[in-house]
Design a protein around this nucleic acid. Structure first.
Lengths: 141, 141
DNA sequence: GCACAATCATTAGCAATGCTAATTGGAGGC
DNA sequence: GCCTCCAATTAGCATTGCTAATGATTGTGC
């Protein structure tokens, strides 16, 4: 594959990813949470108990910013902050049952909406896309 | 392809897209612009002169929010606001030479970084990914 | 032509999100 | 004990997001 073609794939992959996530973001409205809060909650639910520093790093935000977002999630009873006994400087942030339910029980609205879009494809296309996703996962690592 | 497999593709596509854009976002630091400003500038550069309403719609933001972002870009000399003669209520927002250069001349850092990642793939993988991107473009439409 | 509603953008004012710098409280070395 | 380092929070500021209200212009009905 030529250099120009690789550039073409990169540019199109970039803009298609942006468009996809933008389209799916519209599904977030029903959650009652802002984008940063929903994203942080999602990480906590999926990745289990995490420290504040790890969560901030994962969300590409500075610790003070994340500390406030966690405040808001704690206020709503979606996550808890527990002092780590082994090192009482740090905290374990974990989802409450309500927090998990809001995300998972909420049907994972974005994934659900995406499934709807995939249903419009031909089966062979879904298969080709599945293969592309496998490769994309390595690229995005 | 079964229902469960479709869900699997959807969930993985979703999270791979998030990870990809997060990784690429790190490239934005050198631009000296915040994410919303860079994204708005990018749309203006690529899509030519646009109205404020169109730009706000494209960026999924309300008009007052976009009006302020445009203020900041105008202050830095990256875009201009010109009253549309045919309908003097609306404005044409267009990139200045400096604005275009910042984005394009800057090498389109994100795309450039992505090309680097694609180079690590085998040629057959790049081809499969290219096919997947074509389908993704339809899904994200 | 002239009132009147509709439309595009901006202004005003507020909450949430992002940052850096400074502080608090605890861990660990010496 | 004291000193340094480290995780998290607090403080204070700029930016970004919203809705409601305002200005300016266009189009409509009569």
């Amino acid at each position: 594959m030529g250099e120009g073609q690789t550039r073409d794939v990169a540019a199109r992959l970039h803009s298609a990813s942006i468009r996809l996530l933008r389209a799916l973001r519209r599904e977030d409205d029903g959650s009652g949470l802002s984008a940063p809060r929903l994203s942080a909650l999602s990480y906590v639910v999926v990745e289990g108990p995490v420290s504040l520093a790890e969560l901030a790093e994962a969300e590409q935000v500075r610790p003070p910013t994340m500390s406030r977002i966690v405040d808001a999630l704690v206020d709503r009873g979606l996550v808890t902050r527990v002092v780590e006994p082994r090192d009482r400087r740090s905290v374990r942030i974990m989802a409450t049952a309500e927090g998990s339910q809001l995300l998972l029980g909420g049907g994972e609205r974005r994934v659900h909406a995406l499934i709807g879009r995939l249903h419009k494809l031909a089966d062979s296309e879904r298969r080709a896309l599945a293969r592309g996703v496998e490769i994309l996962e390595r690229v995005a690592r």
